[in-house]
């Protein structure tokens, strides 16, 4: 459903905002426009530029990954305000403009989200991620399970808690697909966690 050409695939695999910008400009000139190039440029700006912090390197889509993990916890008590915040975040990530660009826009957004999610999962390999008691004990072998839980909470968990399954469908798909390619057991681990959490409901 969301297949991309090889050149666009390379663009969505890269992490470096400056390099991605150069690639995006080149691809917009070289590749035939599927009707979503303007949206891709808009997504780039929405993600890497913040009017409140001009000139400062930002990644607002990456922040939504960690923000959604926190919102999952907040939504237990403040469901409505969490749902409102999720809607605002989705709008910031371009969900509100999908109707303008149709299927091509949806594909562009899906891959942009996949790129942000992949970047989030890479940060989970940093030494500071889930450091353990008093910041002294390494998380060790449970790190993989932590990442799985983060992926579930920021997608299906949050969508169910805020009752925004439909609005978050594309986001959820990007997260679950992005998590599934992390390692051979990832998809199975995610499905097992989802079953466990669904039973709890």
């Amino acid at each position: 459903m969301f297949e991309q050409g090889a050149r666009w695939h390379a663009y969505y695999r890269d992490d470096d905002p400056a390099y991605r910008r150069r690639m995006l400009d080149e691809l917009c000139m070289l590749e035939p426009d599927d009707g979503a190039n303007a949206f891709r440029l808009w997504l780039y700006k929405a993600r890497y530029e913040d009017a409140a912090r001009p000139g400062q390197p930002v990644d607002r889509f990456l922040f939504q990954c960690v923000n959604f993990v926190q919102l999952y916890g907040t939504a237990r008590i403040f469901r409505r305000s969490a749902a409102k915040e999720v809607r605002e975040s989705l709008a910031l990530m371009g969900f509100g403009r999908l109707a303008e660009f149709g299927g091509a826009g949806e594909r562009a957004l899906y891959w942009e989200l996949r790129n942000a999610v992949a970047r989030y999962f890479r940060t989970c390999e940093s030494p500071g991620y889930r450091r353990g008691v008093f910041g002294l004990v390494g998380a060790g072998e449970s790190r993989g399970a932590h990442v799985c839980r983060d992926a579930w909470e920021m997608s299906l968990g949050l969508a169910r808690r805020t009752r925004l399954e439909d609005e978050m469908a594309l986001w959820n798909r990007a997260v679950t697909d992005g998590y599934a390619v992390l390692d051979p057991q990832a998809a199975e681990r995610f499905a097992a966690l989802d079953r466990k959490m669904s039973e709890k409901r």
Binding site: L62, F63, N67
Partner: peptide
């Protein structure tokens, strides 16, 4: 509060987000 909790959750992701 959100930034404090996010830092505890995944510091590197928050840093790369420009916070």
């Amino acid at each position: 509060g959100r930034y404090i909790l996010c830092i505890g959750s995944n510091r590197e992701a928050v840093r790369l987000s420009g916070v």
